[in-house]
Amino acid sequence: MSRKKIGLLVMAYGTPYKKEDIIPYYTAIRHGRKPSDKQIDNLARRYEAIGGVSPLARLTRDQADALAEQLNAAQVDYEFHAYLGLKYIHPFIEDAVTQMRSDGIEQAVSLALAPHYSRFSVQSYIDRAQAKARELGGITIASIKSWFDQPQFIHFWKQAVLRAFEDISESERNQTVVLFTAHSLPEKIIKNGDPYPEQIKETAEAIVHAAEIKHYAQAWQSAGKTPDPWLGPDVLDQIRALHKKEEYRHFIFCPIGFVAEHLEVLYDNDQECRALVESLGANYHRPQMPDTDPLFIDALSSAVLNVCRSHLFLAAK
């Protein structure tokens, strides 16, 4: 008996593929308003600082392919076909839904490569996918809102943190702080009861408990340049405060809101945060990101299979 085809819509933020993509990419982020020459030069400089282009495009595709492979190996009833839909660069979310429909897909699951739900971020991915599905007709999409509490995701970060501690001498581990970070969002989301800040907190606390971390803190990074206040404390301010109060000798950075090596990690963390930490006479550590680690792909696979079962795509095993 042949397997039933299920679409797997993997959604992500997107990144420029080459230098020429920076202007249209940045313009899309700014809702059609072209950035100034100064803004373009600043972003281009940041990409140059990490090698000219972000590895995110390749890693996102690799994650989608690895997830489809894992799902198809995990059960025998359904055949998952991966489609990549990006928010700010091609292939756009709408392009992916259109391609699924053209390929004869009638049922699909969507998952954003962002562990934590916010109406400001993940919901915008879901809305675009669902709107295109309604417009086309003949295809239904079961959308996963969050997967931050998948045990394998927590276990990945537990192992990552413990490996980072192995590089620190026993005598200095008590002078080490683990700093959990995630992308900041406008403060106004709190007034609207958005679960994003609480989900970040729950993730950090779950990792702390699993890895038995003694000293830890949380901060926000990569805030947008807008007049509205964004969630804080900012990661650079938090580094200064922690060092002033406790004089930590080691800072282990865990960007738990991100799932791959990309600009916010390779530049904001590995260059800006590292420079500040080292200027204070301390040491910077940052574990490998999830990328295509089997534990991480397992976490995504479990989230997809759970939603399939709840939508009766798959019979519970």
Rank of each mutant, 00 (worst) to 15 (best):
I252K: 03
E205A: 10
L236D: 12
E212H: 14
H209G: 02
I252N: 01
L242R: 02
L280F: 10
E261R: 00
D237E: 15
K244C: 11
V277R: 01
E198F: 06
L266S: 09
K201S: 13
T203F: 06
A204G: 13
V277C: 08
I213E: 08
E205T: 11
I256Y: 09
L231M: 11
H262P: 08
K225V: 13
P229L: 14
I207Y: 07
G257Q: 06
D228M: 12
I207C: 06
I252F: 02
I207F: 05
I213V: 15
A206I: 04
A219M: 07
Q199C: 08
Q199P: 05
E261G: 02
V259W: 06
R274L: 03
A211E: 10
D234P: 11
D237T: 11
A217R: 07
P197C: 14
F251Q: 08
I200N: 03
D234K: 01
P233C: 14
K244L: 12
A241S: 14
P197D: 12
L280I: 09
C254D: 05
R274A: 06
H243C: 05
A275L: 09
L276N: 04
V265M: 09
Y267I: 08
Q199I: 08
K214Q: 15
K201E: 15
K214H: 13
A275I: 00
Y267N: 05
A217T: 00
F253Y: 05
E246N: 14
K244F: 11
A217E: 15
P197F: 05
E246W: 10
I239P: 00
I207S: 09
V235K: 10
I252D: 00
I256S: 03
A206P: 03
D234F: 06
A204H: 01
L266F: 04
E247S: 15
Q271H: 12
I207T: 10
A211M: 05
L276P: 00
K214P: 01
Q221D: 04
A204M: 11
A217F: 04
K225Y: 10
S222L: 08
A282H: 05
Y216R: 00
A260W: 00
I200E: 01
A241G: 00
E198P: 00
A223L: 08
F258P: 01
P197V: 13
H250T: 09
C254T: 14
H262K: 02
Q221S: 13
S279R: 03
